[in-house]
């Protein structure tokens, strides 16, 4: 597999920045929170034990901090193909504003904030920074996630 030595032009970068995904709506299910908490190995009763969670500051069950990663199908249609076959997750930055509870309907919208190219140990790599905004059924922003995708 060959990757282009220099892929990203300034024009492409400008085209990519600001691209926004169509909104995706996702229903938060109690059973999904339970499966997610089990998968990350976190036995915190705030996620699974209603009686215990009621005594916490949220007054009921909530989702773990990274649960909104399970909102799938948020697609960013770039005006060009990111012609690299491999992907790595570079990092994430969450900000939280309201708890996410079972029964919430969360709408996610992602936007491209930055795109840069670097040469590294794996050859030419494109770093795409996206900001995903998650809102609930009351139109409150519950969280934002800034994520860096590395394509190489």
């Amino acid at each position: 597999m060959s990757t282009p030595a220099n892929f990203l032009t300034e024009e492409m970068r400008q085209q990519a920045i600001g691209v926004e995904s169509p909104p995706v709506t996702f229903e938060v299910e109690k059973g999904h929170i339970l499966r997610f908490a089990e998968a990350i190995g976190d036995p915190n009763p705030q996620y699974t034990d209603e009686a215990e969670a009621r005594r916490g500051r949220n007054g009921g069950l909530v989702a773990p901090p990274t649960f909104l990663r399970s909102v799938r199908g948020v697609n960013l249609e770039l005006p060009f193909e990111l012609s690299f076959s491999r992907r790595l997750d570079g990092g994430s930055d969450w900000e939280y504003f309201h708890p996410v509870r079972p029964g919430d309907r969360i709408t996610a919208v992602a936007r491209v904030a930055e795109m840069t190219e670097r040469s590294g140990r794996l050859g030419t790599m494109v770093f795409m920074t996206t900001i995903t905004t998650y809102s609930n059924q009351f139109e409150e922003v519950v969280a934002t996630q800034t994520n860096t995708l590395i394509a190489y």
Binding site: G56, R57, P65, L88, D89, G90, G91, D93, W94
Partner: peptide
């Protein structure tokens, strides 16, 4: 604990 609130969680892989 149950009375604390997480506001920000950032990490790099």
């Amino acid at each position: 604990g149950p009375l604390g609130t997480l506001k920000r969680l950032q990490c790099q892989y």
